[in-house]
Amino acid sequence: MSELRFTNQHEWVRIEGDEATVGITKYAAEQLGDVVFVELPEAGKKLARDAEAAVVESVKAASEVYAPLSGEIVAANAALSDDPAKVNADPEGEGWFFRIKLADKAETEGLMTADQYTEFVKGL
């Protein structure tokens, strides 16, 4: 299993071949509070990098989740519709949001490593 990469919008990305799995970071899940609803993109949807891909809601906040990389959605985590609490319980595992087929692998260069992201969060 490849290691995680991160964005400054608090998404994590796991790249496997020409696909990437995307979710929100543990830090983001804690900031939001109890997640009560997740709106996911439909498979087949084409997204440019930084386009709105999903929405995650807690009781008092709603936040957009952006596509960290350009590509086409191949799957969304339907389990979150029934049990959005998974995002809090296991944000970087079972709480994944969607998988995207990458349009341009070069875009992955701009993502942060785990250490870089930890530093980034410290600075907030």
Binding site: G33, D34, V36, F37, E57, S58, V59, P84, A85
Partner: peptide
């Protein structure tokens, strides 16, 4: 007492 808003929303 305080009400469970998470439960209400989920």
């Amino acid at each position: 007492r305080r009400l469970d808003e998470t439960r209400a929303a989920r």
